[in-house]
Amino acid sequence: MKKLKKLIASPVTTIAAFAVAAGLLLFSSIGGARAALTYFSDDYAANIQLHEIGVTLVENGAPVEGELLKGLLAEGEELKLGKAYQEQLNVYNSGVINEYVRVSIHKYWVDREGEKIPSLSPELIGLNLVNLGTDWLVDQEATTKERTVLYYNKLLASQSETPLFADKLTIDGSIADRVGETRETSGGYTTITVTYEYDGARFCIEAKVDGVQEHNAQDAIWSAWGRRVTIDDGVLRLN
Protein backbone atom coordinates (compact mmCIF):
# COMPACT_ATOMS: atom_id res chain seq x y z
CA MET A 1 0.00 0.00 0.00
CA LYS A 2 2.87 2.32 0.87
CA LYS A 3 4.41 1.76 -2.57
CA LEU A 4 1.10 2.45 -4.21
CA LYS A 5 0.76 5.65 -2.25
CA LYS A 6 4.26 6.67 -3.21
CA LEU A 7 3.50 5.98 -6.82
CA ILE A 8 0.28 7.95 -6.65
CA ALA A 9 2.00 10.84 -4.90
CA SER A 10 4.80 11.14 -7.44
CA PRO A 11 4.49 14.24 -9.65
CA VAL A 12 5.13 12.22 -12.79
CA THR A 13 2.14 10.02 -12.10
CA THR A 14 0.02 13.08 -11.35
CA ILE A 15 0.93 14.85 -14.57
CA ALA A 16 0.51 11.71 -16.60
CA ALA A 17 -2.82 11.03 -14.99
CA PHE A 18 -3.94 14.58 -15.67
CA ALA A 19 -2.94 14.41 -19.29
CA VAL A 20 -4.61 11.07 -19.92
CA ALA A 21 -7.63 12.11 -17.90
CA ALA A 22 -8.02 15.29 -19.89
CA GLY A 23 -7.62 13.35 -23.12
CA LEU A 24 -10.23 10.84 -22.22
CA LEU A 25 -12.58 13.50 -20.94
CA LEU A 26 -12.19 15.46 -24.13
CA PHE A 27 -12.69 12.43 -26.25
CA SER A 28 -15.81 11.74 -24.30
CA SER A 29 -17.08 15.21 -25.03
CA ILE A 30 -17.00 14.84 -28.79
CA GLY A 31 -20.60 14.97 -29.77
CA GLY A 32 -20.61 14.31 -33.45
CA ALA A 33 -18.59 14.37 -36.61
CA ARG A 34 -18.11 17.59 -38.43
CA ALA A 35 -18.90 16.83 -41.99
CA ALA A 36 -20.65 19.82 -43.48
CA LEU A 37 -18.49 22.80 -42.46
CA THR A 38 -15.30 23.49 -44.33
CA TYR A 39 -12.84 25.44 -42.20
CA PHE A 40 -12.40 25.01 -38.49
CA SER A 41 -10.60 27.08 -35.93
CA ASP A 42 -8.41 26.04 -33.05
CA ASP A 43 -10.05 25.50 -29.70
CA TYR A 44 -10.39 28.65 -27.72
CA ALA A 45 -10.19 27.51 -24.18
CA ALA A 46 -10.57 29.45 -20.99
CA ASN A 47 -9.52 27.82 -17.79
CA ILE A 48 -10.89 29.06 -14.53
CA GLN A 49 -9.23 28.03 -11.36
CA LEU A 50 -10.21 28.61 -7.76
CA HIS A 51 -7.56 28.32 -5.09
CA GLU A 52 -7.49 27.51 -1.45
CA ILE A 53 -7.84 29.83 1.49
CA GLY A 54 -6.25 29.01 4.82
CA VAL A 55 -5.41 30.59 8.12
CA THR A 56 -3.35 29.52 11.10
CA LEU A 57 -3.09 30.92 14.60
CA VAL A 58 0.49 31.29 15.77
CA GLU A 59 1.36 31.17 19.47
CA ASN A 60 4.87 32.07 20.58
CA GLY A 61 6.12 31.45 17.06
CA ALA A 62 4.53 28.03 16.59
CA PRO A 63 1.29 27.11 14.85
CA VAL A 64 -1.47 26.25 17.27
CA GLU A 65 -3.61 23.23 16.76
CA GLY A 66 -6.77 23.69 18.77
CA GLU A 67 -5.16 23.97 22.16
CA LEU A 68 -3.91 27.28 23.42
CA LEU A 69 -1.59 28.01 26.40
CA LYS A 70 -0.19 24.49 26.27
CA GLY A 71 3.32 25.60 27.02
CA LEU A 72 2.45 28.33 29.49
CA LEU A 73 3.53 26.31 32.53
CA ALA A 74 6.21 23.69 32.81
CA GLU A 75 5.11 20.35 34.17
CA GLY A 76 4.33 20.59 37.84
CA GLU A 77 4.65 24.37 37.79
CA GLU A 78 1.96 26.32 39.60
CA LEU A 79 0.39 29.33 37.98
CA LYS A 80 1.71 32.48 39.62
CA LEU A 81 -0.86 35.17 40.15
CA GLY A 82 0.29 38.52 38.87
CA LYS A 83 3.08 37.13 36.74
CA ALA A 84 3.11 38.25 33.11
CA TYR A 85 3.58 35.10 31.07
CA GLN A 86 4.78 35.34 27.51
CA GLU A 87 1.82 34.76 25.22
CA GLN A 88 2.66 36.05 21.77
CA LEU A 89 -0.16 35.59 19.33
CA ASN A 90 -0.41 36.40 15.65
CA VAL A 91 -1.88 35.05 12.45
CA TYR A 92 -0.31 33.26 9.49
CA ASN A 93 -1.86 32.96 6.05
CA SER A 94 -1.43 29.27 5.32
CA GLY A 95 -3.61 29.36 2.20
CA VAL A 96 -2.80 29.97 -1.45
CA ILE A 97 -4.79 33.18 -1.86
CA ASN A 98 -4.33 36.46 -0.04
CA GLU A 99 -6.89 37.21 2.61
CA TYR A 100 -8.26 39.59 5.20
CA VAL A 101 -8.35 38.31 8.75
CA ARG A 102 -9.92 39.11 12.08
CA VAL A 103 -9.49 37.60 15.52
CA SER A 104 -12.19 37.10 18.17
CA ILE A 105 -10.84 36.63 21.66
CA HIS A 106 -13.13 35.27 24.34
CA LYS A 107 -12.09 35.24 28.01
CA TYR A 108 -14.18 33.51 30.63
CA TRP A 109 -14.17 31.20 33.61
CA VAL A 110 -15.50 27.66 33.76
CA ASP A 111 -16.15 25.37 36.67
CA ARG A 112 -14.81 21.86 37.14
CA GLU A 113 -17.48 20.48 34.82
CA GLY A 114 -16.55 22.92 32.09
CA GLU A 115 -19.70 24.96 32.60
CA LYS A 116 -19.25 28.67 32.18
CA ILE A 117 -19.38 30.79 35.35
CA PRO A 118 -20.65 34.14 34.10
CA SER A 119 -20.41 35.71 37.55
CA LEU A 120 -16.61 35.59 37.57
CA SER A 121 -14.94 38.52 35.94
CA PRO A 122 -13.29 38.05 32.52
CA GLU A 123 -11.39 41.28 33.15
CA LEU A 124 -9.12 39.53 35.62
CA ILE A 125 -7.80 37.40 32.76
CA GLY A 126 -5.33 39.90 31.39
CA LEU A 127 -4.32 39.26 27.80
CA ASN A 128 -2.19 42.20 26.83
CA LEU A 129 -3.15 43.31 23.34
CA VAL A 130 -0.54 45.05 21.25
CA ASN A 131 -0.22 46.89 17.95
CA LEU A 132 -3.74 48.21 18.34
CA GLY A 133 -4.59 51.06 16.02
CA THR A 134 -1.52 50.54 13.86
CA ASP A 135 -2.14 47.01 12.65
CA TRP A 136 -5.14 45.73 14.54
CA LEU A 137 -8.42 47.60 14.83
CA VAL A 138 -10.66 46.93 17.81
CA ASP A 139 -14.27 46.48 16.79
CA GLN A 140 -15.90 48.52 19.54
CA GLU A 141 -19.37 47.37 18.47
CA ALA A 142 -18.43 43.78 19.16
CA THR A 143 -16.46 44.39 22.32
CA THR A 144 -17.83 43.13 25.61
CA LYS A 145 -16.11 42.21 28.86
CA GLU A 146 -15.82 38.70 27.60
CA ARG A 147 -15.10 39.30 23.94
CA THR A 148 -12.71 41.45 21.94
CA VAL A 149 -12.76 41.42 18.15
CA LEU A 150 -9.71 42.67 16.26
CA TYR A 151 -9.52 43.28 12.53
CA TYR A 152 -6.15 43.23 10.79
CA ASN A 153 -6.24 46.40 8.76
CA LYS A 154 -4.13 45.18 5.85
CA LEU A 155 -4.26 42.46 3.29
CA LEU A 156 -2.45 39.38 4.54
CA ALA A 157 -0.50 37.89 1.67
CA SER A 158 -0.30 34.16 1.21
CA GLN A 159 2.40 32.49 3.32
CA SER A 160 3.04 35.61 5.39
CA GLU A 161 2.13 36.59 8.91
CA THR A 162 0.71 39.54 10.79
CA PRO A 163 2.40 41.46 13.58
CA LEU A 164 1.49 40.27 17.08
CA PHE A 165 -1.91 41.09 18.49
CA ALA A 166 -1.09 39.91 22.01
CA ASP A 167 2.16 39.44 23.90
CA LYS A 168 1.51 38.68 27.57
CA LEU A 169 -0.95 36.94 29.81
CA THR A 170 -1.45 37.84 33.47
CA ILE A 171 -3.99 36.47 35.89
CA ASP A 172 -4.77 39.31 38.21
CA GLY A 173 -3.71 38.72 41.82
CA SER A 174 -6.97 40.17 43.02
CA ILE A 175 -8.76 36.90 42.22
CA ALA A 176 -7.41 35.91 45.65
CA ASP A 177 -9.31 38.75 47.26
CA ARG A 178 -12.79 37.46 47.47
CA VAL A 179 -12.82 35.05 50.31
CA GLY A 180 -15.03 33.26 52.76
CA GLU A 181 -13.69 31.53 55.81
CA THR A 182 -14.39 28.84 58.35
CA ARG A 183 -12.54 28.43 61.62
CA GLU A 184 -12.43 25.68 64.10
CA THR A 185 -10.87 25.95 67.51
CA SER A 186 -10.06 23.09 69.74
CA GLY A 187 -7.80 23.59 72.73
CA GLY A 188 -4.93 25.74 71.73
CA TYR A 189 -5.39 24.99 68.01
CA THR A 190 -7.30 27.15 65.64
CA THR A 191 -7.73 25.92 62.09
CA ILE A 192 -8.69 28.52 59.54
CA THR A 193 -9.92 27.38 56.16
CA VAL A 194 -10.16 30.12 53.62
CA THR A 195 -12.35 29.76 50.54
CA TYR A 196 -12.04 31.87 47.46
CA GLU A 197 -14.63 32.49 44.82
CA TYR A 198 -12.14 31.76 42.06
CA ASP A 199 -10.70 28.69 43.71
CA GLY A 200 -11.05 25.69 41.41
CA ALA A 201 -12.32 27.88 38.58
CA ARG A 202 -10.50 27.47 35.32
CA PHE A 203 -9.76 30.52 33.24
CA CYS A 204 -10.21 30.10 29.51
CA ILE A 205 -8.92 32.04 26.57
CA GLU A 206 -10.37 31.27 23.20
CA ALA A 207 -8.98 32.80 20.05
CA LYS A 208 -10.83 32.35 16.81
CA VAL A 209 -9.29 33.57 13.58
CA ASP A 210 -11.49 34.22 10.56
CA GLY A 211 -10.13 34.69 7.07
CA VAL A 212 -11.92 35.87 3.97
CA GLN A 213 -10.92 36.04 0.32
CA GLU A 214 -9.13 39.04 -1.14
CA HIS A 215 -11.30 39.58 -4.19
CA ASN A 216 -14.56 41.38 -3.48
CA ALA A 217 -13.50 41.32 0.17
CA GLN A 218 -15.81 44.12 1.15
CA ASP A 219 -18.84 42.18 -0.06
CA ALA A 220 -17.44 38.91 1.16
CA ILE A 221 -16.95 40.29 4.69
CA TRP A 222 -20.44 41.72 4.65
CA SER A 223 -21.87 38.46 3.48
CA ALA A 224 -19.81 36.04 5.54
CA TRP A 225 -19.14 38.00 8.72
CA GLY A 226 -22.09 40.37 8.61
CA ARG A 227 -19.82 43.36 9.30
CA ARG A 228 -19.68 46.43 7.06
CA VAL A 229 -16.14 47.48 6.34
CA THR A 230 -14.49 49.67 3.74
CA ILE A 231 -11.46 48.44 1.90
CA ASP A 232 -9.54 51.08 0.09
CA ASP A 233 -6.33 50.19 -1.68
CA GLY A 234 -5.81 47.17 0.52
CA VAL A 235 -6.47 49.05 3.76
CA LEU A 236 -9.42 47.93 5.84
CA ARG A 237 -11.50 50.34 7.91
CA LEU A 238 -14.45 49.51 10.12
CA ASN A 239 -17.59 51.43 9.20
Partner: peptide, 26 residues
Protein backbone atom coordinates in the same frame (compact mmCIF):
# COMPACT_ATOMS: atom_id res chain seq x y z
CA UNK B 1 -18.87 34.26 -16.85
CA UNK B 2 -19.38 35.45 -13.26
CA UNK B 3 -19.11 33.35 -10.15
CA UNK B 4 -21.85 34.11 -7.70
CA UNK B 5 -20.25 35.03 -4.40
CA UNK B 6 -23.24 34.40 -2.25
CA UNK B 7 -23.59 30.76 -3.21
CA UNK B 8 -20.06 29.71 -4.12
CA UNK B 9 -18.39 28.98 -0.83
CA UNK B 10 -15.55 26.94 0.52
CA UNK B 11 -16.49 23.80 -1.34
CA UNK B 12 -15.33 25.60 -4.45
CA UNK B 13 -11.75 25.86 -3.28
CA UNK B 14 -9.26 24.03 -5.49
CA UNK B 15 -11.73 23.54 -8.28
CA UNK B 16 -11.24 24.21 -11.92
CA UNK B 17 -13.42 24.72 -14.93
CA UNK B 18 -12.67 24.70 -18.58
CA UNK B 19 -14.70 26.40 -21.29
CA UNK B 20 -14.16 26.06 -24.98
CA UNK B 21 -15.24 27.83 -28.12
CA UNK B 22 -14.71 26.69 -31.68
CA UNK B 23 -15.39 28.51 -34.89
CA UNK B 24 -16.02 27.32 -38.37
CA UNK B 25 -16.39 29.09 -41.65
CA UNK B 26 -18.15 28.02 -44.78
Amino acid sequence: VALDGETQGNDYQNTLASLQMNFAVD
